[in-house]
Design a binder for these strands. Structure first.
Lengths: 221, 221
DNA sequence: CAGGACCTGACAGCAGCCTGAAAAGTCAAG
DNA sequence: CTTGACTTTTCAGGCTGCTGTCAGGTCCTG
């Protein structure tokens, strides 16, 4: 998700931004309504986190303005504990939720996730590797825009590579990933699956390091 | 509006009831799930205010039950501050909003008004998925212009997909949606319902991800 | 150039999924 | 309470295509 954070307090802004980033979202942090306005013009956001007391005006006026202009991006208001009236007015003005300062960061995550879910934006982080685009949660892969179907085992192996892109993985490590601990594998199963992955993902997607193991190619051509 | 209040704490129940009455709504106040169940059988409500910790069970189980039986009345959950997981599960189970105790009464009014507005001003939120057109509120579906009839459980399952179109849902998630917590399902009920949905909605509407779960297909081809 | 490491097409067996049908449950009407 | 229509759940058989194995080949390295 792409999130616009409007908050003029340095410390809070940083903390919130860090948390959201860690949750896998992209954050633009602005410290005034003027800049917020500007960001909205150039970018489409999935969510706005809006402080109310800002140097160049009140957040609620901002909210009403953008709603009046037809923007329906979900908004979560950040408000002080005792400003009950603000919260009510906020909901009336078209906010979707609010957080009472000081709030727990995990609560922030939960609210953001909840709004995300409610609005069914694009909640899954996409990973880009070479010419592949991977949705880790949905197990979906696109290669040059074309969907690629992997079987369960193929995915399990590929996921192992994704967790350490560009890092050398030994045969043993890969086997441990596919099979329960102590798995005794006699044949060349890993090689076979590497082969199958290459056929589906591209010949150069996985690099053989002779005598050592395999490595996911991360670079562009 | 006619509102069902499910809350076992005397003081809170009275206060909430009084506030809502003052706002011009009709309130039925019950203090257990058993009575709530009963009220639902005899009356149609516009909104349910649902406490979670009740003498004869957990509110979320109640919510799942009525959703599975085809009831789509908006629900606002009343929950304690620290039950973050309850709130998230609540939204997953089909709640529309939640209030964190202790809450201000004027805040309650605002939320109730917001839900009312959402369901009145937006009478027919139509969702389009593939060649299906779904009226979430009325539980009506048209496939290529032809109406499709779903049973309660079929709908409950389908609604789960609609909330996250295109997202992978595990069997477990789908079961959690249909059955009260702890309901161990031994057989392949989910598969059977998937099969029925496919028969009614089209073979390609739901995609199987072997070993992982199912996904609502959103793209046309 | 010999030997080892790696690659890949083919295939039997089977896990996971699908679905028709029967049994069990629900509910409203009489 | 009984009946009948309908929905939900279970069960079992059938089928698809995934999995692990092998064999014969290619490619690297010393």
């Amino acid at each position: 998700m792409r999130i616009l954070l409007v908050e003029d307090t340095e410390g809070l802004g940083e903390a919130v931004g860090a948390q959201i980033t860690e949750d896998g979202h992209a954050v633009d942090w602005v410290q005034s309504l003027r800049f917020a306005q500007n960001s909205l013009r150039t970018t489409t956001y999935d969510l706005i986190l809006l402080d109310l007391m800002l140097p160049d005006g009140h957040g609620l006026d901002f909210l009403k303005t953008i709603r009046a202009s037809g923007n329906s991006t979900p908004v979560i208001i950040l408000t002080a504990r005792d400003q009950v009236s603000d919260r009510i007015n906020g909901l009336n003005a078209g906010a979707d939720d609010y957080l009472i300062k000081p709030f727990d960061l995990s609560e922030l995550s939960a609210r953001v996730a909840a709004v995300a879910r409610r609005y069914r934006g694009n909640p899954n982080p996409l990973i880009r590797v070479g010419n592949l685009e991977v949705d880790l949660h949905d197990h979906r892969i696109q290669r040059n825009g074309q969907p690629v179907e992997l079987t369960a085992r193929e995915w399990a192996l590929f996921e192992g590579f994704l967790q350490r892109p560009g890092i050398l993985l030994s045969r043993q490590q890969l086997e441990d990933r596919l099979y329960a601990f102590g798995a005794e594998i006699e044949s060349n199963t890993i090689e076979v699956y590497i082969s199958r992955l290459r056929k589906k993902l591209g010949r150069d997607a996985i690099v053989t390091v002779r005598g050592m193991g395999y490595r996911l190619e991360t670079d562009e051509t």
